[in-house]
Design a protein around this nucleic acid. Structure first.
Lengths: 228, 228
DNA sequence: AAGTGGTCTAGACCACTCG
DNA sequence: GAGTGGTCTAGACCACTTT
């Protein structure tokens, strides 16, 4: 039986787990492992690189490879388009464009996106429905500079989906908080004001500058699940 | 100037962003790209593998490499030990063990961990403090089978930290929800009952079976931030 | 049947950093 | 200065999937 890089990764992981190589310990160099397993050093390198990406080991030139002392667990969140998220739950998807205005950017919005205060922006409110029930209320500030002329019809394609397919998003961040439903959210989603909602706030940067700031207020009971 | 795999990754990414290669399009094969860039095929492979892991492209044998039609954005969450999380925010860390009992597993807890109902479990309540103020209330069900004899003193080292350093955690999941503060949480954290709290619920499996089910109720205003 | 990505090898050079 | 990981090459074989 010949060994592949995944088997070597598994074996190294096993030795770490059974504490042959305890947290903080220096493990043998690539050359030594390659010889032990009877493979090329590149194969060992592939395995160790994968473990380093997973946060299990820490590698430094000259210093060698150590088992992470306080393993930082990394969980990955896949952020799908809302339509696919709903369909993936086995529910029918629909959405309603509740508001669509051109307004000057309020101070906090402009600040978070790095745009001048008062800059004209597109304000969109979209209610996403799952199985006919409110699923997410999307409140979006959109930099109109990224839109083509004429702009797309966000009543036909949700802004969420249009952006993903038509604008090259470069970087961004997402923050989760628990917040009481605002009066507007309560009204639109049919819950009592103050009901705890899971809110995701995302900012996104494109190649030509800031693209959008969006607040997603999820219906009560919504769970964001990640595995690691 | 000679090209490395990161530069090739950047160039491919650029062509995707400027829509030389639009979503859904088939991009040239590794061999062709290697020739164009004047590098070995392995170098191109390294670059494309990285892009595939990032969800930018989709690769299939025989079918070739396509630009992802609906790019699934992937965000990574690093879950540090709570103590380091607090210190990283520039605040002093402390914790108080509020409860420590041996009790039979309630049905929902046993079910989620895959343990028999009524199994004796260690129940721990730990309040983590940041700058002297409540930061997180940790409610933990712990499978005593993973503990050594004699068991550690969780009043001296928080269960959160002891587990990370002493038990080999294999897999798990984490779910975020927004929930109203329970009366107990309200009392301990000094907030009004029903206040929206960001709750993280984690289950963890070790090599020798289920390890722990923990509920982390974060103080109001807590933000979980991820970048992508 | 054929073409694609996935992987491995043996060798090499380099950058970094620790002692 | 020397040893480590990071990367590249040229070639090869294989598994898979689509045609």
């Amino acid at each position: 039986m010949t060994l592949g890089w995944e088997e070597i990764r598994a074996e190294v992981l096993r030795r770490i787990r059974v504490r042959d190589w305890p947290p903080g310990a220096l493990i043998p160099g690539e050359e030594a492992l390659a010889e032990e397993f009877g493979v090329a050093r590149a194969t060992v390198n592939r395995a160790l690189t994968a473990l380093a990406e997973a946060g299990v080991i820490e590698r430094k030139k000259r210093a060698g490879t150590r088992v992470a002392a306080l393993p930082v667990r990394r969980a990955r969140l896949e952020i799908p388009v809302i339509r696919l998220d709903v369909l993936g739950r086995g529910l029918a998807y629909d959405f309603r464009l509740m508001a669509d205005r051109q307004v000057p950017a309020p101070v906090p919005v402009a600040a978070r996106l790095g745009l001048p205060e008062g800059q004209p922006m597109r304000y969109l409110e979209t209610l996403h429905l799952a199985g006919g029930l409110p699923f997410v209320l999307e409140t979006r500030w959109l930099n109109p500079a990224v839109l083509p002329d004429p702009p797309p019809d966000f009543a036909a394609v949700s802004a969420n989906e249009w952006l993903v397919t038509h604008v090259s998003l470069v970087s961004g961040d997402i923050a989760f908080t628990a917040e009481p439903a605002t009066p507007r959210e309560a009204e639109v989603m049919g819950v009592a004001p103050g009901t705890p909602l899971l809110v995701a706030e995302r900012t996104t940067q494109g190649m030509a500058g800031p693209v959008t700031l969006v607040r997603l207020a999820h219906a009560p009971g919504h769970r964001v699940v990640m595995t690691f």
